[in-house]
Design a protein around this nucleic acid. Sequence first.
DNA 1: TTATAAAATGTAAGTGCTTACATGTTCTGC
DNA 2: GCAGAACATGTAAGCACTTACATTTTATAA
Lengths: 332, 332
Amino acid sequence: MNIYQVAELAGVSIATVSRVMNGSDKVSEKTRSRVLQVIDEVGFTPNVFAQGLGLNTMHTIGILVPNISDIYMSSAVAYLQDSLAKYGYDLLLGNSGFEQEKKEQQTALLLSKHVDALIYVGSTYAGSGKDERETDYIRRAAEQVPVFVINGGVDGDNIYSSVCEDEAAVYNAAKVLIKKGCSKIWFLTDSRSYSAIKKRTGYERAIEEAGLNPVQLHVDNRIHKVRDYLLQHDDLNFDAVIAGSDAIAIGVMKYAVQKGLCVPEDIAVIGYNNSELALACEPELTSIDNHTEQICRDTVERMIKVFEAGGAENNIKRKLTVPCELVERGSS
Amino acid sequence: MNIYQVAELAGVSIATVSRVMNGSDKVSEKTRSRVLQVIDEVGFTPNVFAQGLGLNTMHTIGILVPNISDIYMSSAVAYLQDSLAKYGYDLLLGNSGFEQEKKEQQTALLLSKHVDALIYVGSTYAGSGKDERETDYIRRAAEQVPVFVINGGVDGDNIYSSVCEDEAAVYNAAKVLIKKGCSKIWFLTDSRSYSAIKKRTGYERAIEEAGLNPVQLHVDNRIHKVRDYLLQHDDLNFDAVIAGSDAIAIGVMKYAVQKGLCVPEDIAVIGYNNSELALACEPELTSIDNHTEQICRDTVERMIKVFEAGGAENNIKRKLTVPCELVERGSS
DNA sequence: TTATAAAATGTAAGTGCTTACATGTTCTGC
DNA sequence: GCAGAACATGTAAGCACTTACATTTTATAA
């Protein structure tokens, strides 16, 4: 069933059918209803490829995440999907991993499918001047479609980013620990993403302001890996840990259990993302909530605005900042 | 840049360029390399919409999950994405929720984008004869493209399903608990999915064989919701719980903590899916691993075979069964 | 060489839409 | 009753490919 057959049945030209489908106002009420009835009767759906050929869009948004199975990323995808569905957009999903090459490749793949926009969740970025070329592929993509970055440190023309205030969040978290009397507060993270760097900065600032000694450890993001890593080192000497994720934080708690240490008495622990994991352990985990849902919804809202504005010239905010919130529970 | 310009530059017709791109063997080596060189030089990518119009495919697979943010679903998506990427397929993602209407709607949306196949992860199904019409929309979809169902109970022409042996798994888990001396083993689940029904059947069989009394509770799938639900009831009387998910199981453990009961001494707990959550709690959770990764990879392998066979007539297995495994930890 | 088969390449007809522009129809005011 | 405006509809040219079929080129054998 194609537009020609519908036109035939309705006794009009294909242009008229097309106009009816696209809600053009230049159709008489009589004709419109007749066409709609035929469309309904025969169950006609326009061919997206033909539409795409003409319009160069398929109402699809490309999304690239490093790891969908990560609880934080997957909930971001869920929120994005949900919001976009309301506007009739579908999601084309790329799971990029953390390798540069794969990211570029997946980006090309999504672009080749003529997505209307690209969303990067937590794109890595080595930060100030370190190796900005790493994200060049994103800027190149932005020449073709608007790019939205969630918790990533990329900017440029046609790039819109939404970040949470990781630095302030960790700074405050460290302050809280200091106030509680902790003096050997370590920072554990698994990635060198833009977020991780901001977290680290906040951590260092708080620690140094208090005249303490900052210690950072780079670990895996899986509970048992963290525990085992810590168990293998006997030079550990912390009374508090701020972790880059809830899984890492729980890894620390597992270490404490093995060592016969008590949380929070001997070691205070603060996680990140406030995911379901934070509720699974005992005591429950104090965690920094970075308001993923809000960030995702804001991103979609802005995207729609960008579409409506059409083109890269607009006065829509390039960078949106969302505060984080320390959700205190038993672990600190 | 389009095929005409490439043809022009290479001094051949567009048909030849097309042949080169599609790896047709009817091109001389000389011509092929010349064309490839031009394609490479100018960075030509064929327009997927134009290709789609001719071929009626865009090398895209539609996937429908009830809830991507669920740790089990998201890891399934990750595995599927990973496997499919190897064959050059992209994933068009629908987050259907659990409502019938939304599922049908999302299915239609994906079909309208001419996906090459549909994957349903954990599609609900009320089971033997109860209301088979609920899944009619899946059978209708299967008239258009091959449909792959993971842990769902749908079958029909052009539908390929992969299920894990939930029934046997729960049966065995219950047996283990019985052997350990538990006599008041309850079963808690959150959904009436096909899997849930199989689990229940296994549970009932084991309990009844042992001459015990089966008790089932229908709960939410979130840790605190489960805990609160249990706390509100004071007629609880179990010494073991088999849960339909790890989150539910941990909810039970949270309840135990509140009540001052010990796990596993007072209450033995077994979860499902063997997710990261199972490692987060203390004691760690005994959980049934349903080998999601293997199921996903098998599904993709079969899909490729179906594509190669072309058409619904083939002797590729319609139903694949994967055993589950009880991973025993401290909670039981 | 030349007839003939085989291989390589080109031509042109789809594929199903959108939309600028052309044409036809209805309404308005005099 | 009619010019001219306003509105409705149709015509046809893209959009960028694939591929059956036609044609040309090259190889093969007598």
